[in-house]
Amino acid sequence: MPSDLQKKLQLVTAHRVVRNELASEIIENQSLFSELIELCFQFSNKSAPKAFWILELICYEKLEWLVPHLDFFCSNIKNLTHDSAIRPAAKIGLLLTISHFKKKEISLTENQLQQITETCFDWLITNTKVASKCYSIRALHLLGNHFNWIHPELKVILDKDYNNHSAAYKAVGREILKKINKQK
């Protein structure tokens, strides 16, 4: 029997107003957050990508709520296959790396940093949508300030793939390559 949250997720559409409504409801009732995380990774559930849409919106305001779930989140994002789930997961990965390295609000373990790194590289070199690749590039740039091997690897991939991608990918690629080259 589906829970109330599962029923609401089934009714969610891509319209931002609809997604915001459910995200606001969960922000007002934090006890639903753990269930939302679980639903994100129920790969057999057709609403799992929708759960990720909602999770992304919540993370903009309440990223700290993810802290008790970081091991679960970081170890499972590599298993995502649906582009509609990968894009928000990539954005959340970027938000986590920004919070860890720039804002110093959320502390990620070495293992979590490695899991995010591996997953971002996977998304970057496989056939995922451009938004996921762009979020991954930005996250990897930040992670490269911690793991010194990342920037050279990222540079090779960006140089090699640059001409085969969209304007958005090229814009992010140019920006990050400029930053990497400036750090030398």
Rank of each mutant, 00 (worst) to 15 (best):
W123Y: 07
A139F: 03
T119I: 00
I176Y: 04
N127V: 01
E118V: 12
L32G: 07
K104F: 13
K184E: 11
P2T: 10
L5Y: 02
Q112L: 06
K178C: 06
I150W: 03
L70E: 01
Q42I: 04
K91G: 12
K129M: 07
T13Y: 06
C120W: 05
E38I: 10
N181K: 11
A131T: 01
I157G: 01
K8A: 13
T13P: 04
L140E: 04
F72Y: 14
L113F: 11
L177F: 09
L95F: 12
K178L: 10
E56K: 07
Q114W: 13
I92F: 13
C59D: 04
R19I: 15
C40P: 05
D159A: 12
E25L: 12
F52S: 01
L158H: 10
T81P: 09
N164K: 15
S132C: 07
S75E: 13
A90M: 08
P88H: 05
N164T: 11
K133D: 00
K103M: 06
N163Q: 15
E110H: 11
G173C: 06
A139D: 12
S3A: 05
Y169K: 00
E28K: 10
C120A: 10
K129C: 06
F43G: 11
M1L: 12
L80I: 04
P49D: 04
T117H: 02
L57K: 13
L108V: 07
A23N: 05
R138G: 10
K91P: 02
F52Y: 06
H151D: 03
I176K: 03
C40Q: 04
T117D: 00
F43A: 11
T126W: 05
L66M: 06
S166W: 00
P49Q: 10
S75H: 12
L142V: 07
K160N: 11
D159V: 07
I125V: 11
N163A: 14
K179C: 09
T81Y: 14
I92G: 04
K104T: 01
V130Y: 08
F43L: 15
